[in-house]
């Protein structure tokens, strides 16, 4: 990165470190931390949306819909998560390729599964055969986000459903006696009040989501774990800054990063709980009211 880094063999001490820590691969490593945050920021709303849909399904009066919701929530929660993380991207990828195969190549006469091969025609490959590397990376990343959203959506659905049940039923009855429809009562009475009840559960799920992000590595994405392994391993060649096995130090950086992330979000959620408790008929809300009065 700096001009004096051109010849690593003459560097020593701080100069060596300043060059080593700004090498191109290290910049990729730093960007991977950003990718973790980006993944969290994209997945959280996606999982919340999935969870909201799931909770609405669980509440639904239409029987098949509520059964579908129960099936979704229970199957995801009952099976080890890691199985889902590896299953969903492959299964989804093959599913998409199969659909494209049916649409794009109707005159293909061989079966798709031949022995141990999954064969689709050239036009059905996803991402396309001639796609540049960044499209492939983005596709893999999108698949990962889908898998995360699907798994965490089930957790969120369960939490939100519980929170909706916790809103006093008498209030809904009152709303209906005022002439509100079911939808109106839901939007005006249940929805604003459920968040406070759901917050501890959501905070829990968020912490679990943070701790799930290193699993990206298993999906073949060049994430923080990949770079820590890569950069920490022993190097001997002169131009790659030779050093002994430093993986332990790299992983301790990851450990600290995740500890900071969980610590900060714990603080964030307790702040949010205080804010949402204002004016609520709960112990915390009462405490806040007394404090100001």
């Amino acid at each position: 990165m700096f001009s004096y880094c051109a010849d690593p063999s003459v560097l020593d001490g701080w100069w060596w470190f300043s060059c080593f820590l700004t090498s191109a691969t290290h910049l990729d490593f730093y960007r991977a931390f950003g990718a973790v945050i980006a993944l969290l920021l994209v997945t959280a709303p996606a999982a919340l949306a999935m969870g909201m849909a799931g909770a609405m399904m669980l509440r639904s009066q239409i029987r098949p819909l509520s059964m579908l919701g129960r099936f979704y929530v229970n199957i995801v929660r009952g099976v080890p998560d890691i199985v889902f993380f590896l299953f969903v991207p492959i299964a989804l990828g093959q599913g998409i390729e199969y659909l494209l195969h049916l649409v794009n190549c109707p005159d293909w006469d061989q079966p798709v599964r031949q022995g141990n091969d999954f064969l689709v025609c050239r036009d059905a490959k996803m991402p396309p055969v001639d796609a540049p590397a960044w499209v492939r990376n983005l596709y893999a990343f999108a698949m990962a986000i889908l898998a995360f959203a699907l798994v965490f959506g089930a957790f969120v659905a369960n939490t939100l459903h519980g929170a909706m049940q916790a809103v006093p039923h008498a209030q809904i009855e009152t709303a209906e006696s005022y002439g509100m429809t079911r939808k109106q009562a839901f939007r005006r009475i249940v929805l604003p009040q459920m968040w406070l009840v759901a917050l501890p559960g959501l905070s829990n799920i968020w912490q679990i989501l943070i701790k799930a992000t290193p699993l990206l590595f298993l999906l073949g994405i060049q994430d923080v774990v990949y770079w820590a392994r890569e950069l920490g391993a022993q190097k001997t060649s002169l131009y790659s800054y030779p050093h002994p096995d430093w993986r332990m130090w790299y992983f301790s950086i990851l450990l600290v990063f995740y500890l900071l992330l969980t610590w900060a979000s714990e603080r964030g959620f307790s702040w949010l709980t205080r804010r949402l408790s204002h004016g609520q008929a709960t112990a915390e809300g009462e405490r806040l009211r007394r404090a100001t009065a």
Binding site: K211, T213, G232, M248, L259
Partner: peptide, 22 residues
């Protein structure tokens, strides 16, 4: 308690393994 509950088990495995090989 905070260290082991606040960080991913996956990273803990990596960390301890790379410490043990040293």
């Amino acid at each position: 308690i905070f260290t082991f509950r606040g960080s991913p088990l996956f990273i803990q495995f990596f960390f301890f393994y790379s410490a043990f090989v040293l």
